[in-house]
Design a protein around this nucleic acid. Structure first.
Length: 196
DNA sequence: CCCATGATGCCCT
DNA sequence: GGGCATCATGGGT
């Protein structure tokens, strides 16, 4: 079991996105510790990707974190209601990131249930359990991640990743979803899913 | 299971 | 003012 350091993130977002599968996402706040396993990601690389918020070198207050050094969070607000968690990849000046689309609970599922439904695990319906953290907005709710967590250093102790040696799975690569506006980029196979 | 729809507010032009 | 890297819900199969 070891923590991923900055060099892990300082690579092509597609490679990082694929290698994030199976890693443990650790979240600490107050006296709470939650660990979950990453099961779905998507890569975004502004230079060649019309789906990226930074496409065309568009530096704004929102996107500037993605132009900075690797190994920081990029959390954005979407559809007036939800947050999405990304990890910034590659060196300073290169706008790229990986969106975390789905995680599964590993440690402290109770805290995740309370954060998301304000209900204990044994009070959840089957549907609520299935939908606990299987979407980018859902997992931010379950892990208590909001715009307050934008720009966090992943080598710190609030949000970081661990490799626990979990390797027994196959990787599926598909088109990314909900980016129909992105023309040719919508067909890039930059969505990575853990199978098994 | 699937699909259609409405919610809701920030960001950027 | 338009658009959006989503989700919960409700109804049909």
């Amino acid at each position: 079991m070891y923590k991923l350091e900055r060099d892990f993130y300082d690579r092509d977002a597609r490679l990082v996105g694929e290698e994030l599968l199976g890693k443990l996402l650790v979240r600490k706040y107050d006296d709470v510790l939650i660990k979950s396993r990453i099961t779905e990601t998507e890569a975004y690389i502004a230079e060649i990707d019309k789906a990226s918020h930074g496409y065309g070198g568009k530096v704004t207050p929102r996107t500037k974190i993605m132009f900075g050094p690797p190994g920081f969070t990029y959390v954005y607000f979407i559809y007036g209601m939800y947050y999405c968690l990304n990890f910034v990849t590659e060196g300073e000046g290169i706008c790229s990131a990986v969106l975390i689309r789905s995680v599964e609970p590993v440690i402290n599922i109770d805290a995740m249930c309370m954060n998301r439904y304000n209900k204990a695990l044994d009070c959840l319906t089957k549907s609520q359990l299935k939908n606990l953290s299987n979407g980018p907005g859902k997992l931010c709710n379950a892990l208590k991640i909001t715009k307050e967590e934008n720009g966090i250093d992943l080598t710190g102790d609030e949000i970081y990743l661990e490799d626990d040696g979990f390797r027994n799975f196959a990787v599926e690569k598909t088109k990314r979803i909900n980016i129909d506006y992105a023309e040719e980029a919508k067909d890039f196979l930059w969505r990575y899913l853990l199978r098994n």
